[in-house]
Design a protein around this nucleic acid. Structure first.
Length: 723
DNA sequence: GAGCACTGC
C-alpha cells in the first residue's frame, strides 16, 4: 500500500498554536462589539486558528480537481473500429457516425454459467469482485444463489427504493413471504425477522448496524467469539460499488481493515458495473469475475466540433430525431430545472403540429407529473436531469441525446462553501447514459460533444468523498474507534485539508479530545442521525427546554425544501405563490418550517392540506418520520421555552453572519454573502443571522436563515474560546 | 438583491 502523505499534523502542534491564539481570541471576544476594527482582528485570528490560507488553498483545490478530470489520453488513439466515419442518417452534417464494437455485446453469459466460478473464488479469497452491466441480473440472482453456501447475507443498495423492490422480487423468486427468509431494512421501514437469511439494506443502514453491534460488543464478555464476523454476517455484498458514494467508500475501507485480521470469517463480494473495476482489484488484490451480457446494439453519433451552446444543439437534435425518424421515444440529458423548462418551451413551439408529448423530469417536480414518463401515450421526448441516469429507469427509449455535462455539488474546505458546478461527465457516465437506449430495442445515441473530447474525458466521475464535507463522516469513523483518520486506507483518500478541518471542528465542539479520541458527548452526537451542528442544537434544546420546536425545524433542515417547484408559466402559479408567501415567516425559514408543520398537524396530517399548499408529500412524510425518530431519542421532553435561537446558536455559532454594507459577512471566514431570496428573512435585514448552509451560485448565498441576537451568539463563542 | 443535481442514517 502506498501512502503519499507528505504532511502530518499532530495534535500537540495544533494544541500549542491554539493555546496562543485562544488567549488572544478570548481577549478580543470579551470586548466583542460592532467595532469593525475589532471584528477584523477576530477574523484574522480565526483564520490563523484554522490555518487555512484561503487563496492558496483555493488554487490547490482547483488544481486537484483539474488533475482528476484531465486524465488525458492521446486524441490520436482513435480505435480502429472508429475509423468508419460517415454522415449520420439524420442528414445532420454536424454529426459523425462512429461505430463502436464493444466485445461484451457479442457474447451472452448467464449468472448460472458463472455462479460456480463466483462460489469457488469466494472459497479461496476473502474478497471477490463481480463485474457485469445493468440488466444481467446480478443483483437479483447472485445473492440468492449464494444462500446455500452462506447462512447470513446482507446485500447493500445505494437507494431505499432499490433495496425494497429488489427484496420483493427475490422473495418472490425464492417463494417466501417478504420478511421471512428474504427481507429488507431501510430507514423507517424494516421487513426482517429472526428467520431472515438474506437481507437487502441501504449502505447507510449497514454502517449503523456495524456501529450498534460494536457498541453492544463493548459491553459484552464474549468479545473474541463475536469479532470473527462483521456485524454477524457470513457474507456482505456491496452492490453498485461503481457509484462510489461516501458510504460505499467507507464500508469498503472498514471491511478491508476488518478482514486483515486472521480470525475474520466474513466474506466480501463487490458488485460493480464494468469500466472501473480495476481500481477495486488494485485496492483489494483479489480475483475478478466478469459476466458478459449482450444488450441491443447502440449506434453512436458524435458532434464534429465542440460547441459552447450545448442546449441549442440538444434541442435541434431532439427536433431532428422526431422529424426524421419514424418512431421511438427520445431521452435528453440536461443539467437542471431551468434548462429543462427552456428546452420544453422552445420544443413545444417548434413541434406544435407533431404528434409528440414533451415531458420534464427532475426530482423536485410533483410526483404525478413525474409519473407521466411511464405512461403509454404518443411519442415522447423526455427532458431529464441525471435522475434518469441511475434513479429512474424508463423503458422503450430508442434515442438518447447526451449534453455531456451535469451539475454537482462540491465542497471547498478552504472557505467552507458548497458550490454547485457544471461538470463534464466521465466516460462511465456517458456509457450509462447511452445504455438508457438499447434496453429493449436497438438504439441511437447523439453525443453533443466531439469524439476527441470524449476521449479526453476522465474514466470515472470523481468519488463523492473527494468533493464533500467530512464532518459527519469523520464523526462516525471516530465513533467506530478509528482515531487516525488521516491514515485510514481509503480507495481514494480525501484531502488533508478537509480531514483536518473536520477534526478541528469536532475538537472545538468537544466531540473528540486532544488525542483525536471520541468523547462521551461525541458518542451522543454520533447516535443522532443528523449533521453534527444540528445534533448539538438538539442537545442544547433539551437543556433549554425547546426540544420539540428544534426537532421539528431540524427535520425540515435535512431536506432542501418542503415545497414543489412550479414555474411562472404553470396554470396554478398564482395560487402557488400565495401559498408560499403565506407560510413565509418574517423571522426566516426556521420559523416558516414551524408554521408549516403546525398547520399540517392541525389538518390532522392530511394529504389534502399538502396538495392544496403545494407541499411535496414524499418530503413531508420523510420529515414527519425524521421528527419522530429524533423525538424517540429524547423521551419525556416537553417545551417550556421558546428560545430556539439560543439552541441553534449552540450548534451553528460557526455559521453566523453579520450585516455589512451591501449584504452579509460571515463571522468566521469573512465570506461576503447574501440571504437567499427565497428566505422570508430577506426583507427584515436582521443584524445577525445563523444559516444552515452556504452555497455559491453567481454570488454566495446563505440557505435557511434564522435571526439571532448577538447575546445568543456570545455564549457559545465564549464557551468555545474558554475551552 | 436573484433562483439548486442526486442520495442516505
Amino acid at each position: 500500500m502506498t501512502k503519499n502523505k507528505t504532511k502530518k499534523t499532530t495534535y500537540g502542534k495544533k494544541d500549542k498554536l491554539k493555546k496562543r491564539i485562544k488567549h488572544k481570541l478570548k481577549k478580543t471576544v470579551e470586548s466583542y462589539s460592532d467595532d469593525p476594527v475589532k471584528l477584523k482582528e477576530m477574523d484574522d485570528l480565526v483564520k490563523e486558528l484554522t490555518k487555512l490560507d484561503t487563496i492558496k488553498c483555493e488554487v490547490e483545490e482547483a488544481d486537484r480537481f483539474k488533475r482528476y478530470f484531465s486524465k488525458s489520453e492521446n486524441v490520436e488513439d482513435m480505435p480502429e473500429n472508429a475509423a468508419d466515419i460517415c454522415a449520420g442518417p439524420l442528414g445532420i452534417d454536424e454529426f459523425e457516425h462512429i461505430v463502436e464494437i464493444a466485445d461484451d455485446t457479442q457474447i451472452e453469459e448467464t449468472i448460472d454459467d458463472k455462479i460456480g466460478e463466483i462460489k469457488s473464488a469466494l472459497k479461496n479469497s476473502r474478497v471477490v469482485i463481480v463485474q457485469g452491466n445493468t440488466g444481467c441480473g446480478k443483483t437479483t440472482k447472485i445473492p440468492r444463489m449464494l444462500m446455500d453456501e452462506y447462512r447470513k447475507i446482507v446485500c447493500t443498495q445505494p437507494r431505499r427504493l432499490a433495496a425494497i423492490s429488489v427484496a420483493r422480487k427475490v422473495a418472490g423468486d425464492v417463494g417466501c413471504d417478504l420478511g421471512s427468509k428474504v427481507g429488507y431494512t431501510v430507514r423507517f421501514d424494516d421487513k426482517t425477522s429472526s428467520k431472515t437469511r438474506l437481507k437487502f439494506a441501504t449502505d447507510g443502514v449497514l454502517i449503523k448496524e456495524i456501529y450498534s453491534k460494536q457498541v453492544r460488543l463493548m459491553h459484552s464478555h464474549r468479545k473474541k467469539k463475536n469479532m470473527k464476523k462483521i456485524a454477524g454476517y457470513d457474507l456482505i455484498v456491496i452492490d453498485e460499488a461503481h457509484e462510489r458514494t461516501v458510504n460505499i467508500d467507507f464500508l469498503l475501507g472498514f471491511i478491508k481493515r476488518a478482514l486483515q485480521s486472521e480470525k475474520a470469517r466474513t466474506r466480501l463480494l463487490i458488485m460493480s458495473a464494468t469500466l472501473n473495476t480495476e481500481r477495486f482489484v488494485e485496492y483489494f488484490q483479489c480475483p475478478l469475475v466478469t459476466i458478459k451480457h449482450r444488450s441491443y446494439n447502440i449506434e453512436y453519433f458524435y458532434l464534429k466540433y465542440d460547441c459552447d451552446d450545448y442546449l441549442s444543439v440538444c434541442i435541434r437534435t431532439a427536433q431532428a430525431i422526431i422529424e426524421r425518424e419514424r418512431d421511438g421515444d427520445v431521452l435528453v440529458f440536461l443539467t437542471g430545472q431551468d434548462e429543462i423548462e427552456r428546452a420544453h418551451f422552445i420544443l413545444s413551439g417548434k413541434l406544435s403540429g407533431a404528434d409528440v408529448v414533451i415531458l420534464k423530469l427532475f426530482s423536485t417536480m410533483p410526483p404525478e407529473e413525474q409519473d407521466l414518463v411511464f405512461q403509454h401515450s404518443a411519442r415522447k421526448i423526455i427532458l431529464s436531469t441525471n435522475i434518469a441516469e441511475t434513479s429512474i429507469t424508463i423503458e422503450n427509449i430508442k434515442f438518447v441525446v447526451d449534453s455531456g455535462v451535469f451539475k454537482a455539488k462540491r465542497y471547498y474546505a478552504c472557505n467552507a462553501i458548497d458550490s454547485l458546478d457544471l461538470i463534464e461527465i466521465s466516460k462511465a457516465q456517458a456509457k450509462q447514459r447511452a445504455g438508457r437506449a438499447g434496453r429493449t430495442q436497438p438504439g441511437k445515441v447523439f453525443r453533443i460533444y466531439s469524439y476527441s473530447r470524449y476521449l479526453q474525458m476522465a474514466d470515472n466521475p470523481m468519488p463523492e468523498i473527494l468533493r464533500s464535507k467530512l464532518h459527519s463522516t469523520v464523526l462516525s469513523m471516530k465513533s467506530l474507534g478509528i482515531t487516525d483518520v488521516e491514515n485510514f486506507d481509503f480507495i481514494d483518500a480525501p484531502s488533508l485539508e478537509s480531514i483536518n478541518q473536520a477534526e478541528l471542528f469536532l475538537y472545538y465542539i468537544r466531540a473528540i479530545d486532544k488525542n483525536g479520541v471520541i468523547t462521551d458527548f461525541g458518542r451522543e452526537l454520533a447516535n443522532i442521525p443528523l449533521e453534527p451542528e444540528t445534533a448539538i442544537s438538539l442537545v442544547a434544546a433539551k437543556r433549554i427546554g425547546c426540544l420539540n420546536a428544534v426537532a421539528t425545524i431540524s427535520a425540515f433542515l435535512e431536506y432542501q425544501t418542503p415545497f414543489l417547484e412550479l414555474r411562472s408559466d404553470h396554470p396554478e402559479y398564482r395560487r402557488y405563490k400565495s401559498a408560499r408567501s403565506y407560510f413565509s415567516h418574517p423571522k426566516g425559514d426556521f420559523y416558516s418550517f414551524l408554521v408549516i408543520f403546525y398547520s399540517w398537524e392541525q389538518s390532522k396530517f392530511s394529504f389534502g392540506f399538502l396538495r392544496k399548499n403545494f407541499l411535496n408529500i414524499k418530503t413531508m412524510v420523510q420529515i414527519l418520520n425524521v421528527r419522530a425518530q429524533i423525538l424517540r431519542l429524547f423521551p419525556h421532553c416537553s417545551d417550556t421555552s421558546l428560545s430556539i435561537e439560543r439552541a441553534f446558536c449552540t450548534g451553528f455559532f460557526m455559521k453566523a453572519a453579520k450585516i455589512s454594507e451591501n449584504g452579509y459577512k460571515t463571522i468566521f471566514g469573512d465570506v461576503e454573502c447574501y440571504i437567499h431570496p427565497r428566505d422570508g428573512l430577506l426583507s427584515a435585514h436582521p443584524k445577525y443571522v445563523v444559516f444552515y448552509e452556504l452555497f455559491s451560485l453567481k454570488n454566495e448565498y446563505m440557505g435557511h436563515c434564522l435571526e439571532v441576537l448577538l447575546s445568543d451568539l456570545q455564549e457559545p463563542i465564549n464557551r468555545f474560546v474558554a475551552k
